[in-house]
């Protein structure tokens, strides 16, 4: 069950992400990494308590230390205003519209996914790519979030088991271990 999107929207999103980051000759793609899950969780960040906006610190536990990333930060009233406005849009609320209306990410996804067509997940790859290219603004947004979902810390719901990092030979967060002076200075 997706957190925020409908089943139909989620299926479209998964197919779109898989086009952006296909599984390819042993390379993990959006599907394996859970990129669509990352985006859906972000859109529904306020269905969690605390909201899934900022992972905690100072360590994830992957390289020692406690699993602090797993506990998300509480938001202040101002943080919540900012993030609700960004996600939900300003919705005519005066406290969100001090510089005019803001279209939220939820709306942009809802519209962008609808424009890809209800049959998107079923059409062939070249047609999917053609439809994706038709809306450049949505494509840019989707790409930004695909990159986060593939290469960001797994606690946000993507990069499952660090699969995005390991394929590219990147260690991710390294505290509290860090790197030795020799690792830094030598080839």
């Amino acid at each position: 069950m997706p957190v925020w999107l409908s089943e139909q929207e989620y299926a479209t999103l998964r197919a779109a992400c898989a086009q952006m980051m296909p599984s390819d000759q042993g390379a993990p793609g959006a599907e394996e990494a859970g990129v669509a899950e990352y985006i859906d969780i972000f859109l529904g960040a306020f269905t969690f308590d605390p909201p899934r906006i900022w992972a905690g610190g100072p360590t994830s536990g992957r390289k020692g230390g406690a699993a602090g990333f797993a506990t998300f930060h509480r938001l202040t009233a101002l943080d919540e205003l900012a993030w609700r406005t960004r996600l939900e849009g300003s919705q005519g609320l005066p406290e969100r519209e001090f510089n005019g209306p803001v279209v939220g990410l939820q709306q942009r996804y809802r519209d962008g996914l609808a424009a890809l067509g209800a049959d998107f997940a079923g059409v062939d790859g070249s047609e999917q790519r053609r439809r994706l290219r038709a809306d450049e603004a949505f494509l840019d947004l989707l790409w930004e979030h695909c990159c986060e979902g593939m290469y960001g810390p797994p606690e946000y719901g993507g990069n499952r088991d660090g699969i995005g990092w390991s394929y590219i030979g990147y260690e991710g967060d390294v505290q509290p271990r860090g790197y030795s002076d020799a690792e830094v200075s030598q080839p």
Binding site: I53, W54, A55, G56, G57, P58, T59, S60, G68, F69, H73, L78, D79, L81, A82, T85, R86, N99, V102, E144, E148, Y151, G152, P153, Y156, G172, D173, V174, Q175
Partner: peptide, 25 residues
Amino acid sequence: SADYSNDEIKFISRYFLGPDPLIEP
């Protein structure tokens, strides 16, 4: 504190330390 972390989403994408351009442009 113990709030800082090696987290590209938190610090780069999501303005953890501000300013958030939506509220302080």
